[in-house]
Amino acid sequence: MHISEGILSGGVLLAGWAGTSAGVAVGLKHTDSAKIVRTALISSAFFLASLVNIRIGPSSTHLTLLAPMGLILGWGVFPAVLVALTLQAVLFHFGGLVVLGVNTFIMGFSALSVYLVFGRAVRESKRGAVLSFLAGSLAVILAAGLAGVSLAMTDPNFLNAAKVLIIAHIPLAIIEGAVTVFMVSWLKRSAPEFLS
């Protein structure tokens, strides 16, 4: 889901950095000292998740953990994603530093949206498993959709590619939904304060 360097237009790159700067500023304000270690832990998990390959038929992909990140960190997801993506770009050559603003916004906004829409319901509803699955799946589809919009805004010829991008991420969305159900149910039993 990382968009590479040299593809997006200057306007899209600037918009990405603007959105990311705002998100990180608000995120840092919401992250008090008690939550910093938790944020580092989740950021590390996101950083390492990109190395876990999942085979889907003849192809393969990697986990994003967008929904668990959003549900645990809330607004604090933006700084966590920015740090992890910076290190992925520098150490693993995923994405790039110029396009970092767009990539951070795509993933941070998707994770935050899931938190705002499903956060309370996942914690309190009896249908937590269903909602967790929806949160995990929709976070991936939303991120793929935002990546597609970024490409289409750069060049309208990318519009078909954007549709393909969303369809191609459906298997990952299902897997992420299942992973989110597992993680949320485990956190509810073992460390409910993480979801508070």
Binding site: S33, A40, V83
Partner: peptide, 21 residues
């Protein structure tokens, strides 16, 4: 590289925590 990345993340968290304190 993976260990270095995790180490950098926790060191940044430590610096941020100290500055907030």
């Amino acid at each position: 590289r993976a260990l270095l990345g995790v180490s950098v993340i926790f060191n940044l968290a430590l610096i941020l925590r100290r500055s907030k304190h």
